[in-house]
Protein backbone atom coordinates (compact mmCIF):
# COMPACT_ATOMS: atom_id res chain seq x y z
CA UNK A 1 0.00 0.00 0.00
CA UNK A 2 1.57 3.24 -1.13
CA UNK A 3 -0.04 5.98 0.84
CA UNK A 4 1.98 8.61 2.59
CA UNK A 5 -0.65 9.11 5.28
CA UNK A 6 -0.72 5.42 6.13
CA UNK A 7 3.05 5.27 6.40
CA UNK A 8 3.32 8.24 8.69
CA UNK A 9 0.36 7.37 10.87
CA UNK A 10 1.38 3.77 11.27
CA UNK A 11 4.93 4.76 12.13
CA UNK A 12 3.45 6.87 14.86
CA UNK A 13 0.86 4.38 16.06
CA UNK A 14 2.62 1.01 16.00
CA UNK A 15 5.01 1.75 18.89
CA UNK A 16 2.12 2.90 21.04
CA UNK A 17 0.12 -0.24 20.25
CA UNK A 18 3.07 -2.36 21.21
CA UNK A 19 3.70 -0.47 24.43
CA UNK A 20 0.05 -0.85 25.33
CA UNK A 21 0.25 -4.60 24.58
CA UNK A 22 3.30 -4.89 26.79
CA UNK A 23 1.47 -2.99 29.51
CA UNK A 24 -1.48 -5.38 29.33
CA UNK A 25 0.83 -8.39 29.46
CA UNK A 26 2.86 -7.11 32.39
CA UNK A 27 -0.15 -6.07 34.45
CA UNK A 28 -2.04 -9.31 33.84
CA UNK A 29 -2.01 -10.29 37.48
CA UNK A 30 -3.10 -6.89 38.74
CA UNK A 31 -5.83 -5.82 36.35
CA UNK A 32 -8.01 -7.41 33.67
CA UNK A 33 -5.94 -8.59 30.74
CA UNK A 34 -2.93 -10.80 30.72
CA UNK A 35 -0.83 -12.74 28.28
CA UNK A 36 -3.59 -13.68 25.91
CA UNK A 37 -5.16 -10.25 25.55
CA UNK A 38 -1.83 -8.44 25.41
CA UNK A 39 -0.45 -10.93 22.92
CA UNK A 40 -3.36 -10.29 20.57
CA UNK A 41 -2.69 -6.55 20.78
CA UNK A 42 0.97 -6.99 19.86
CA UNK A 43 -0.05 -9.44 17.14
CA UNK A 44 -2.39 -6.79 15.73
CA UNK A 45 0.50 -4.33 15.57
CA UNK A 46 2.58 -6.89 13.67
CA UNK A 47 -0.31 -7.42 11.25
CA UNK A 48 -0.59 -3.65 10.74
CA UNK A 49 3.13 -3.48 9.99
CA UNK A 50 2.85 -6.33 7.47
CA UNK A 51 -0.17 -4.78 5.69
CA UNK A 52 1.30 -1.31 5.33
CA UNK A 53 4.96 -2.01 4.67
CA UNK A 54 4.41 -4.92 2.30
CA UNK A 55 5.70 -8.43 2.06
CA UNK A 56 9.41 -7.90 1.40
CA UNK A 57 10.10 -5.48 4.19
CA UNK A 58 7.98 -7.37 6.72
CA UNK A 59 9.77 -10.59 5.95
CA UNK A 60 13.12 -8.89 6.34
CA UNK A 61 12.27 -7.77 9.86
CA UNK A 62 9.99 -10.64 10.96
CA UNK A 63 11.61 -13.71 9.46
CA UNK A 64 9.79 -17.01 9.71
CA UNK A 65 12.58 -18.91 11.43
CA UNK A 66 13.19 -16.16 13.99
CA UNK A 67 9.53 -15.97 14.97
CA UNK A 68 9.20 -19.75 15.05
CA UNK A 69 12.18 -20.20 17.32
CA UNK A 70 11.00 -17.35 19.55
CA UNK A 71 7.65 -19.10 19.88
CA UNK A 72 9.23 -22.47 20.57
CA UNK A 73 11.56 -21.07 23.21
CA UNK A 74 8.65 -19.40 24.99
CA UNK A 75 6.65 -22.62 24.85
CA UNK A 76 9.57 -24.56 26.31
CA UNK A 77 10.05 -21.95 29.02
CA UNK A 78 6.34 -22.08 29.81
CA UNK A 79 6.44 -25.88 29.98
CA UNK A 80 9.45 -25.93 32.26
CA UNK A 81 8.20 -23.22 34.64
CA UNK A 82 4.68 -24.61 34.86
CA UNK A 83 5.94 -28.18 35.00
CA UNK A 84 8.19 -27.26 37.93
CA UNK A 85 5.26 -25.75 39.76
CA UNK A 86 2.98 -28.71 38.93
CA UNK A 87 5.43 -31.33 40.03
CA UNK A 88 6.66 -29.69 43.21
CA UNK A 89 3.09 -28.86 44.15
CA UNK A 90 1.79 -32.31 43.33
CA UNK A 91 4.42 -34.27 45.19
CA UNK A 92 4.45 -31.87 48.16
CA UNK A 93 8.08 -30.95 47.61
CA UNK A 94 9.08 -27.49 48.75
CA UNK A 95 12.56 -27.26 47.29
CA UNK A 96 12.47 -23.64 46.27
CA UNK A 97 9.43 -21.76 47.41
CA UNK A 98 8.04 -19.40 44.85
CA UNK A 99 6.71 -16.28 46.59
CA UNK A 100 2.97 -15.76 46.52
CA UNK A 101 3.39 -12.01 46.36
CA UNK A 102 1.74 -8.95 47.86
CA UNK A 103 -1.36 -7.48 46.21
CA UNK A 104 -0.73 -4.43 44.06
CA UNK A 105 3.02 -4.91 43.57
CA UNK A 106 4.06 -5.55 39.98
CA UNK A 107 7.18 -7.62 40.52
CA UNK A 108 5.97 -9.77 43.39
CA UNK A 109 3.63 -12.05 41.46
CA UNK A 110 5.75 -15.18 41.62
CA UNK A 111 5.53 -17.22 38.43
CA UNK A 112 2.59 -15.36 36.94
CA UNK A 113 4.65 -12.61 35.35
CA UNK A 114 7.11 -14.81 33.40
CA UNK A 115 4.27 -17.14 32.38
CA UNK A 116 2.25 -14.18 31.12
CA UNK A 117 5.23 -12.97 29.10
CA UNK A 118 5.62 -16.42 27.54
CA UNK A 119 1.93 -16.56 26.63
CA UNK A 120 2.13 -13.05 25.22
CA UNK A 121 4.98 -13.96 22.88
CA UNK A 122 3.31 -17.19 21.74
CA UNK A 123 -0.05 -15.56 21.12
CA UNK A 124 1.36 -12.59 19.23
CA UNK A 125 3.37 -14.85 16.93
CA UNK A 126 0.42 -17.19 16.41
CA UNK A 127 -1.92 -14.30 15.55
CA UNK A 128 0.61 -12.97 13.04
CA UNK A 129 1.07 -16.45 11.53
CA UNK A 130 -2.69 -16.96 11.22
CA UNK A 131 -3.00 -13.66 9.38
CA UNK A 132 -0.15 -14.57 7.05
CA UNK A 133 -1.66 -17.99 6.43
CA UNK A 134 -4.92 -16.55 5.18
CA UNK A 135 -3.46 -13.46 3.49
CA UNK A 136 -0.67 -15.06 1.53
CA UNK A 137 -1.75 -18.67 1.46
CA UNK A 138 1.25 -19.90 3.40
CA UNK A 139 3.21 -19.02 6.50
Amino acid sequence: MNSKILFEVSRLVIPFIQVFGAYVILHGHLSPGGGFAGGTIIGASLILYRVIYGKTEAEERLTYSKLLSLMCISLIAYGILKGYSFITGGSHLEVFNIPIGTPGKLLSGGLILPLNICIGIVVSVVIYFLFKLFYEGEI
Binding site: S69, C72, I76, G79, F86, I87
Partner: peptide, 12 residues
Protein backbone atom coordinates in the same frame (compact mmCIF):
# COMPACT_ATOMS: atom_id res chain seq x y z
CA UNK B 1 5.02 -32.63 30.30
CA UNK B 2 8.24 -34.16 29.00
CA UNK B 3 6.65 -35.15 25.69
CA UNK B 4 5.07 -31.71 25.24
CA UNK B 5 8.28 -29.83 26.04
CA UNK B 6 10.54 -31.92 23.83
CA UNK B 7 8.11 -31.68 20.92
CA UNK B 8 8.68 -27.93 20.80
CA UNK B 9 12.45 -28.24 20.79
CA UNK B 10 12.27 -29.93 17.38
CA UNK B 11 11.67 -26.81 15.21
CA UNK B 12 14.78 -25.25 16.75
Amino acid sequence: IFLFITSFTMPL
